[in-house]
Each structure stands twice: as C-alpha cells, then as structure tokens.
C-alpha cells in the first residue's frame, strides 16, 4: 500500500502501551492549491480499528481535524507480550490499510 502504518507495542507492567503512526495526507478539503487556486479534495481517515489477538480493543471515528500522518496512542490492560496487535483504517475515498505487530 501507498500509506504504511508503523506500530510499536510494549508492555508496561500489566498494560500494553501501543503507539501507532499512520502515513496519510489527511486533506481537509478546505485547502487550496497555491498554484492553481483549486480546492484540494478532502482525503482523510474516517475509521480506525485496533485489535489484540483478534479482539477489538479500540474503535475510532475521525474527522478532518486529525493531523497529517496521524499518531494514535492507547493502552490495553490484560494484554500479554507476544500478543498480536492489528491496526486498520479506512478513509473517505474507501481506501484501506492494515498492519500487524507483536507486543514486546
């Protein structure tokens, strides 16, 4: 995929600290192209889902107010080292991506 996702998941005591960086332009649809003066169409992530070992732990709905290349950090209690974290997103143009990582 054009837009990779980076995930880092580490255990802090009995809580998994999961941090993720998604590459995405997050265009608001409000900006204008400096050269042509045309409005750049909106292109942003609307939904993000995170799972640990297949169980949904976090569901996000985002607006255009999330920054470019979004960062998402969250904490999951009861997860263990070795568990598989999956983060997937879908944007307003129907593009999707997902990535896996193992909690260490």
């Amino acid at each position: 995929m054009a837009y990779p996702i980076k995930i880092r998941a580490t255990m802090e005591g009995d809580v998994a600290d999961i941090k993720s960086l998604m590459n995405h332009p997050m265009e608001t649809g409000l900006r204008k192209d400096a050269k042509t003066g045309k409005v750049i169409p909106a292109h942003y992530i609307q939904q993000v889902t995170a799972t640990v070992n297949g169980k949904v732990v976090l569901e996000c709905e985002w607006s255009i107010a999330i920054s470019q290349n979004p960062f998402l950090g969250f904490k999951v209690k009861g997860a263990k080292a070795g568990d598989k974290v999956t983060i997937s997103w879908q944007d307003n143009l129907g593009e999707k991506n997902s990535a896996d990582a193992t909690i260490s």
């Binding site: 732990v57 569901e59 996000c60 709905e61 985002w62 999330i66 998402l72 969250f74 904490k75 997860a79």
Partner: peptide
Amino acid sequence: AAEFKFSNGTEGYVSTR
C-alpha cells in the same frame, strides 16, 4: 475532532495529534 470507543480492557486513555 474524533471519537474513540474502548472495549476488551482498553484503558480510558488516548493520545493523538
């Protein structure tokens, strides 16, 4: 700006930009 829904042990914590 955003809404985050937690389940299956996720703590009431979120960090973003």
